[in-house]
């Protein structure tokens, strides 16, 4: 392999890290406040709810599925927390909300497994509208507020690290262990690569599919908790279109939409990258109308790299017959 080829190959394999480095350098040059520890802590804190949800999404994407309902699940969970669990102590309310997210994910998982002919895209698109409708009906489309103990949680730090980042780190670590070190995690990769072969190998494919949607629902609920603790109030647009940054974070981190490839390490990079760009745009006093343009350009870039990567890698690794 020539040197140029090797560089191109490395670049493709590490596209997320390179994009991240480029973004850092560009904003550091544009604003002297950007490259500070305080600002970086700020970025990670703000990114943590998307990162947690994107970790759940990674499980689903690895099976070549998709979950569009995460934003709606997040909203339902927060609405229930604010309206029904307002008087419960945090240590009771939070696990209940997490369970609710898990149950909503189980609904998705149930239909994905039962209606094998129907793509998860359609199923979760349906649950997106149904759940958002339920939440809007529950809240009467009005702003809901959470009680003081939860709000103060948003400001809490432990060892100088904000609570949201601890949550984020905990979810990431658990997800990493599950995916890398447990039979279930490795079977997720097998199912994503080839469901028919996985079934032949004796893997309980429906069980694996059901489980990943449960995990995704659980992570959506945890993301909602982290987010509401930071903003204290949820309007009728809470979690609206959240599926886009969430899926983008996972794909940007190298998880393939076609299943079987990727992992949660890349996902957290993706989530932080998206937040970094937004933060950098604020720091450099960019026109706010540019934000969606830049974000969508990043998402486009992520999907483009994903679709081209395997094709280019194949072409580059093509067997040589002659030694020239």
């Amino acid at each position: 392999m020539t040197g140029g080829r090797r560089v191109a190959l490395m670049a493709l394999k590490n596209a997320p890290a390179i994009a991240f480095a480029v973004v850092l350098v560009v904003f550091a040059l544009l604003s002297d406040r950007f490259l500070t520890v305080a600002n970086f802590t700020n970025i990670v804190t703000q990114a943590s709810h998307v990162a947690i949800m994107a970790i759940g999404m990674t499980f689903v994407l690895l099976t070549a599925g998709i979950d569009l309902s995460v934003g709606a699940v997040m909203y339902v969970c927060v609405a229930v927390l604010a309206l029904l669990f307002g008087d419960l102590p945090v240590l009771v309310a939070f696990p209940l909300v997490a369970l609710l997210g898990l149950a909503l994910g189980a609904v998705n998982g149930f239909f994905v497994v039962q209606l094998r002919g129907l793509h998860p895209f359609i199923i979760t698109l349906a649950t997106l509208f149904i759940l958002r409708g339920i939440a809007l009906w529950m809240t009467d489309t009005r702003m809901v507020f959470v009680a003081e103990p939860i709000m103060s949680l948003g400001r809490t730090s432990y060892l100088g690290v904000p609570w949201a980042i601890w949550m984020f780190a905990g979810v990431f670590l658990s997800a990493w262990i599950v995916l890398r070190q447990t039979p279930f995690g490795r079977q997720i990769y097998a199912v994503g690569q080839d469901p028919a072969a996985a079934a032949k190998a004796g893997i309980d494919v429906p069980r694996v599919l059901f489980a990943v949607y449960c995990i995704c629902g659980l992570c959506a609920a945890l993301g909602g908790l982290v987010s509401i603790a930071q903003v204290a109030a949820a309007s009728s647009t809470f979690g609206f279109q959240k599926e886009f940054p969430v899926i983008a974070a996972a794909v940007l981190g190298g998880t393939s939409l076609f299943g079987g490839r990727g992992g949660v390490v890349g996902t957290i990079f993706g989530a932080i990258l998206i937040q970094t760009v937004e933060n950098g745009l604020v720091m450099t006093n960019a026109n706010p109308y540019l934000y969606p343009l830049v974000t969508s350009a990043i998402i486009f870039f992520a999907v483009l790299v994903d679709s081209q990567r395997s094709r280019i890698l194949d072409a580059m690794n093509r067997r040589k017959i002659r030694v020239e």
Binding site: Q181, T182, P183, F184, Q187, Y189, A190, A198, I203
Partner: peptide, 24 residues
């Protein structure tokens, strides 16, 4: 499964566990 290693392919349907109780 091309995305798994040789050892994972061999044991994918029945991984030996490190601790009987934990799925590691």
């Amino acid at each position: 499964f091309e995305n798994l290693s040789i050892e994972e392919n061999i044991f994918v349907s029945d991984f030996p566990r490190r601790f009987a109780k934990l799925p590691l």
